Simulated assay, not measured.
Amino acid sequence: MEIAELRSCKLIVGSGLTAGLAANLLCDVHELSLSFLPFAKFSSMPEILPRRAFFDALELSRAEEAAVISKVSTSAREVVWNDGNVSAQRSLESTDDFFIYDKGLLASWLLDRAIQRGVHAIKSHAQSSTIQEECKNFDAVLDCRGAGAVAKDPGYTIRQETLSSTYCTYAIIKRPKSMSNDHLVFWSVLNEYGLQRTFFAMPCGTELTSVGGSYCEGDQLDITALLDMMCSLGYPLTPSDVKLTANVAPHRFSCSHSHPKIIPLGDAARSTCPLTEYGVMSALSQLLQLRGDNGLLPSVIRRPASSQIDPHIPVELFL
């Protein structure tokens, strides 16, 4: 839908980066309200984006940019990647080329900035599974709730585009003293059939760590095998240490809503492959086009080419 077709009074629904970016990029051309969860939870895992393209789209001064980078920096300080017999270590500070950030802190900064610029904030105590009722009060609803909420909304049609290129089994554990609280550590290995696996240990909060393994189609990894592997890497874990387990397969899909006033944005519109694309940059490009500007170049949205199967590794820092 072109920006010219949209009317002026719009509601943004969501608490994450896409909602915050929408509020900041569109507030100069529309009257906006933003409905968000004040205590939304975010992964504390560091994330990475191409720095110039991101901040140029927000039209920040270099002084503002530097202040934001400092304010939303991640608590993790280093990343270590053990690839076969080769080990390399990198700082998790932003570089001239890449912006490294804490997702929750950046979302909070975007929200605060949008409010300062005149966006009306509406604190929501619960996120409804459907937003169609909101269309009665607004000319358009910009749905930034993400893929999980869209999957539960009966108004959406979901079309799967491709199967996942990467699979992950992980567990949240109480961090043992032998594990670092500010280092991300990865181990890339081959299983007995010659298939690549990458295991990881990533702090998430003050007392917990996420341990897991990424693997390709045709391979399998259960929690028992994961804990055995962590033990062989020097971290003896038992099932009693595990607080939560999950399996993830990020399939690519696109979504559309039956109501003409509801416009899905970001992951609510189209999921991206975390191995090959920056999801935030894809959403940013969509928002620029919604505003009437040119979208981002495909080269800015694509992650650097890599044979790695684990999307958590900031491979950009090792090239």
Score class of each variant (00 low, 15 high):
D219N: 08
D267E: 15
K261D: 01
C255P: 00
S306Y: 08
H251W: 13
S299H: 13
I309S: 03
G292E: 06
L226V: 01
H257P: 02
D267C: 07
S258V: 12
V242S: 05
A225K: 03
R303H: 07
D222Y: 06
E217I: 12
P304C: 14
P239E: 00
L221T: 00
I262K: 00
S299M: 10
F253S: 12
Q220T: 14
S258E: 15
D267G: 14
L288F: 11
A225W: 08
A283T: 03
I301N: 02
A269H: 13
S307F: 13
R303E: 04
T224D: 11
I262N: 04
D241M: 08
H257N: 05
P239Y: 10
M281E: 01
D267K: 05
H259R: 04
V280H: 01
N247M: 14
P236E: 07
D293N: 13
L221V: 02
Q286L: 10
I223F: 02
G295C: 08
S232H: 14
L226N: 03
L287C: 03
L226G: 00
S232Y: 06
S306K: 01
A269P: 05
P264F: 10
R270T: 09
L284D: 02
D222T: 05
E217R: 10
S285N: 04
F253R: 15
V280F: 12
R291L: 15
R303V: 08
P298L: 11
P304M: 15
D267Q: 15
A305F: 15
P264Y: 06
R291E: 08
T238A: 14
P239N: 02
G279L: 09
S271M: 12
N294Q: 12
S271P: 09
A246H: 08
I313N: 01
L221D: 00
M229D: 03
P260M: 06
D293Y: 09
I313M: 07
L290C: 04
G218F: 11
Q289N: 12
G295D: 04
M281N: 00
M230I: 04
D241E: 06
I309F: 06
V315Y: 11
P236L: 09
S256M: 08
E217L: 11
I313Y: 00
C273P: 03
I313C: 06
P264S: 07
S285A: 09
G234M: 10
D267W: 05
P239M: 07
S254P: 02
